[in-house]
């Protein structure tokens, strides 16, 4: 008996809600591996209801929970564990039946490595160019610095003038990803010269996004927001 694809969304919902009888649920779980449309429907259903889980108050967890997980990773030894404690079909299988399972695991591992390799090459090539460049000006409209934001927590700041920074002060670089987020720090310019800054992960920089450098107390703004005078500011242009 095959399931009519037009029933997939309804079945997927009941599967995700845990409402199917055991036999049907097992069958769906099995079919997910081979039936792309069914797998898509289930993934969509999972994401539809996910907000109900995201709204939960996180529970306190025992300090030992991670240790227990890690210990079991050790004894399971990564790939070799694949399936064995989980997949019922392997549990009762004889040696002859296990071998194809291993092959699948090995192939999946190879496939995963390939995806990784391709992704890394692609990423490395993509990150050579900044996503945006902002030319920062002072109040008089003179070019003071250039910020290249690579959109991967990395921004390069090139200073094009000598800034007068008192001994107890430091320059801090900011951007405004959105009004709701407010200004976010890209990092401190401890030395008064060009530097590559690492920040926390921020939204991908956009055209006309504001960048600025302010003068803050050593160690950076105590509030996490710019408090000192603005030394230079400018708006981003997307690299084309």
């Amino acid at each position: 008996m095959t399931i009519d694809p037009k029933d997939f969304p309804a079945l997927a919902d009941e599967y995700v809600l845990g409402l199917l009888d055991e036999a049907t649920a097992d069958r769906i779980a099995r079919d997910l591996e081979s039936n792309q449309d069914l797998a898509d429907a289930v993934a969509a259903a999972q994401d539809r209801f996910l907000p109900l889980d995201m709204a939960v108050e996180p529970a306190r967890i025992s300090a030992s929970l991670w240790t227990s997980i890690e210990e079991r990773l050790g004894s399971n030894n990564a790939r070799s564990a694949s399936g064995s404690p989980e997949t019922p079909s392997v549990r009762h299988a004889g040696n002859d039946n296990i071998r194809p399972g291993w092959r699948v695991v090995a192939l999946s591992a190879i496939a995963a490595s390939l995806i990784l390799a391709i992704t890394l090459v692609w990423t490395t090539m993509r990150t050579v160019e900044p996503v945006v460049v902002a030319v920062l000006l002072n109040e008089a409209g003179e070019v003071q610095a250039i910020v290249e934001d690579f959109g991967n927590e990395t921004a390069k700041v090139r200073l094009l003038t000598d800034f007068a920074v008192p001994a107890d002060k430091t320059m801090q670089v900011w951007t405004l990803p959105s009004r709701t987020m407010g200004p976010m720090s890209l990092g401190l310019l401890e030395e008064k010269h060009s530097a590559v800054l690492k920040s926390i992960s921020l939204p991908r920089p956009k055209e006309t996004q504001l960048y600025e450098i302010t003068l803050e107390n050593s160690g950076g703004s105590p509030t996490g927001r710019p408090t000192g005078p603005i030394l230079a500011k400018g708006f981003a242009k997307l690299m084309r």
Binding site: T119, T123, T124, R126, N152, T154, P177, P203, R204
Partner: peptide, 13 residues
């Protein structure tokens, strides 16, 4: 190094 890149690929939030 790749983390942040993925983290910011298409998200604005």
């Amino acid at each position: 190094r790749t983390d942040g890149y993925f983290g910011r690929e298409d998200g604005t939030t």
